[in-house]
Computed example of a mutant assay.
Amino acid sequence: MTIDTFDGTSVKPAHWDLDQVVRQLRVSREATHNIRHQRRIRELPSREALTTIVNGLSAVLFPTHYGRPNLTDESIDYFVGDTLNTTLNRLTEQVRRGLQFADSEEGMDEAMLTQRAHDITRSFAASLPEIRALLVSDVQAAYSGDPAATSIAEIMLCYPGTIAILYYRLAHRLHQLGSPFIARMICDISHSLTGIDIHPAAQIGGSFFIDHGTGVVIGETAIIGERVRLYQQVTLGAKRFPADASGALIKGTPRHPIVEDDVVIYAGATILGRITIGAGSTIGGNVWLTQSVPPCSNVTQAQIHNDCK
């Protein structure tokens, strides 16, 4: 029997000129190509921790669906309280780490950052009942809007759109409260899980339904009203990116669509720019749209009809 005395790869150790490579990497890291925020080493938020946090928050909001299926009327509140306490403590630490990268928090010492993180987390916890109400409206919209849905449980456990909206609702509230870095990471985790990319700053009303969902993109300044339904591969994007005199992109300007109440957008539609899709409109599949349409419009690849007459 041959005993492997190397590193588990059956490759003999070799010399790699490590001193030279490490030295050049230091020069790149510290001088010529330094990309650190404020040129300082800071403790990054953890994707693994945020995944655990979102799982905990999901269990708090819907204990029997995302928590434990064997909960009883006697035990459920204890489970929610214990899970919420642990999860909020974890969230506070991640918010604190994220605040280190916010220009608005520059100059704060550790004690101030920690207090700010506690304040954000406390406000976030207080808004959880409101978030749950929105999520319930989203689930009900999915159940009533999809003839293939057989139960609420199926929607909550099997529909990627529902998972993406859950992550978005949590992230959006954190973004509103002043934790944009953590919010962005939560939505990116959701993107990896579902294939649906929603920016946490987007504004989305209740009873929102994403059917199938793969490839949906909703940009930062998009505004979506109540009872809106999207299908797969829909893009609510920007048409152009304004720049300042030096050529640098101007950030934060409204550049994504406004979708009013009761709009349906079918698969593959691309809607670009700060345009308005009027209430009650239907946008057909694979439409490329860069101009506003009035309420009750029916837009196909070739024509715009008005159904309110």
Rank of each mutant, 00 (worst) to 15 (best):
M1Q: 11
T2V: 12
D4P: 09
D7V: 02
A14I: 14
W16R: 14
W16I: 13
L18H: 06
R23V: 09
L25Q: 14
V27E: 11
A31T: 14
A31S: 14
R40A: 13
E43G: 07
E43F: 14
E43W: 12
S46Q: 03
V54F: 06
G56I: 07
S58L: 13
A59G: 15
L61R: 04
P63R: 02
G67K: 07
N70M: 11
L71H: 01
T72R: 06
T72D: 06
S75K: 09
D77W: 12
L84S: 07
L91P: 02
L91D: 00
T92V: 04
L99P: 02
Q100Y: 11
G107E: 06
D109G: 14
L113E: 07
L113Q: 08
Q115R: 15
R116G: 00
S123H: 12
S123I: 04
S123A: 10
A125S: 15
A126F: 15
I131D: 02
R132N: 08
D138G: 00
A141S: 11
G145L: 00
G145E: 02
P147R: 08
T150K: 12
E154S: 07
I155L: 11
M156G: 01
Y159W: 15
Y159F: 15
P160E: 00
Y168F: 13
G178C: 07
G178P: 09
I189E: 06
A201R: 08
A202L: 04
V216H: 01
E220W: 02
T221M: 11
A222K: 04
R229W: 01
Y231P: 09
Q232N: 11
Q233A: 10
G237H: 00
R240L: 10
G247C: 07
A248W: 07
L249R: 10
I250R: 10
P254C: 05
R255Q: 01
H256F: 10
P257G: 03
P257A: 04
V259W: 05
E260T: 06
D261R: 00
V263C: 09
I271W: 08
I271N: 06
I283R: 00
G285Q: 10
G285E: 08
Q291C: 08
V293T: 02
N298V: 15
V299N: 00
V299M: 03
Q301Y: 05
A302C: 11
I304Q: 09
